[in-house]
Computed example of a mutant assay.
Amino acid sequence: MTGTIDPEAATYLDKTRIAYDEVAADYADLLRDLHAEATWDRAVLSAFAEVVRGPVVDVGCGPGRITGPLARLGVQVSGVDLSPAMVEVARREFPGLRFSVGSMLELDLADGELGGLVSWYSLVHTPRSLLPAVFAEFCRVVRPGGHVLLAFKAGDRKRTLTSGYGHDIDLDVYEHPAELVIDLLDEAGFAERMRLVRAPEEFEKQAQAYVLGVKRG
């Protein structure tokens, strides 16, 4: 995607960047072992690692808590995040992997450069009106036959966080209906390969969704 970011996108990007710069270190400490404890997360990521071929980018990678496990599964993966502070933590936690600062609306990647792309709860702060632009950008950078894996909060609600990870923040959180996400992916150029919507567990308050799409050739 090229050109000037519209005001709605600019506001969402600024709010997200500021909030995660603020909480980066504590976020990494609090969620460090979450993946190891999450049965469904491990199952979905393992399946993705089996089907994907070629380089993968973890978009909205945060401190690398999913990038690292993907690398251990043998995936050729790097990470991109909007927050410079998150990228700094990721580089420290996983010095053997490559992390860079960037936006999911304008990825610094060539057309068809990737064999796969992961967006692991990075859509949770994305307004629904911007999802088509995000998925179009994902489709641009993934080659035909390549895969996109999304994890997100399933539902139809928006709320605003004023505190998180021990800090005062101002951050919108969106739930997205799984059917809508699949329809928008289809419009962008991805065919559905797998969907899983599961009930909330432990500290979760809503259902969680995983969607795997393949770019049509």
Score class of each variant (00 low, 15 high):
residue 47 A to Q: 13
residue 92 R to I: 01
residue 134 V to L: 02
residue 116 G to I: 01
residue 80 V to R: 11
residue 51 V to E: 13
residue 139 C to W: 02
residue 66 I to Q: 04
residue 140 R to M: 02
residue 63 P to C: 09
residue 49 A to G: 08
residue 95 P to E: 06
residue 49 A to R: 10
residue 75 V to W: 09
residue 52 V to I: 10
residue 58 D to H: 10
residue 98 R to D: 06
residue 78 S to G: 11
residue 111 D to E: 15
residue 92 R to S: 11
residue 90 A to E: 05
residue 137 E to R: 04
residue 80 V to L: 13
residue 89 V to R: 07
residue 71 A to K: 09
residue 58 D to G: 08
residue 136 A to R: 15
residue 115 G to L: 15
residue 53 R to P: 01
residue 53 R to H: 12
residue 133 A to L: 04
residue 147 H to Y: 15
residue 54 G to Q: 05
residue 89 V to Q: 04
residue 155 G to D: 00
residue 47 A to T: 13
residue 69 P to E: 13
residue 144 P to Y: 02
residue 106 E to T: 09
residue 80 V to H: 13
residue 49 A to C: 07
residue 119 S to P: 07
residue 78 S to F: 02
residue 152 F to T: 14
residue 128 R to I: 04
residue 123 L to E: 03
residue 55 P to L: 00
residue 121 Y to E: 05
residue 152 F to A: 09
residue 106 E to V: 12
residue 58 D to C: 11
residue 59 V to C: 15
residue 144 P to F: 02
residue 51 V to Y: 04
residue 150 L to H: 15
residue 120 W to A: 04
residue 54 G to H: 08
residue 116 G to W: 09
residue 71 A to P: 00
residue 146 G to A: 04
residue 131 L to A: 01
residue 115 G to M: 15
residue 103 S to N: 10
residue 156 D to Q: 02
residue 61 C to G: 07
residue 122 S to C: 03
residue 134 V to T: 08
residue 89 V to N: 01
residue 59 V to T: 12
residue 54 G to M: 08
residue 55 P to H: 07
residue 98 R to P: 02
residue 151 A to W: 01
residue 129 S to I: 08
residue 119 S to I: 03
residue 141 V to G: 11
residue 59 V to N: 08
residue 138 F to T: 01
residue 125 H to M: 10
residue 135 F to S: 04
residue 97 L to Y: 05
residue 108 D to I: 06
residue 101 V to C: 12
residue 87 V to P: 00
residue 84 P to F: 04
residue 109 L to E: 01
residue 151 A to V: 12
residue 107 L to Y: 13
residue 55 P to R: 09
residue 72 R to N: 11
residue 99 F to Q: 11
residue 65 R to V: 07
residue 141 V to D: 13
residue 120 W to I: 08
residue 115 G to D: 05
residue 94 F to R: 01
residue 62 G to H: 05
residue 153 K to M: 14
residue 109 L to F: 04
residue 69 P to C: 11
residue 126 T to P: 10
residue 66 I to R: 05
residue 110 A to N: 13
residue 117 L to P: 14
residue 68 G to I: 07
residue 63 P to M: 02
residue 79 G to Q: 09
residue 79 G to Y: 10
residue 59 V to Q: 05
residue 96 G to C: 01
residue 149 L to H: 10
residue 146 G to S: 12
residue 142 V to D: 06
residue 95 P to S: 07
residue 149 L to F: 14
residue 74 G to L: 11
residue 118 V to N: 00
residue 57 V to R: 14
residue 146 G to Y: 00
residue 67 T to Q: 07
residue 124 V to K: 06
residue 49 A to V: 08
residue 140 R to E: 03
residue 147 H to D: 12
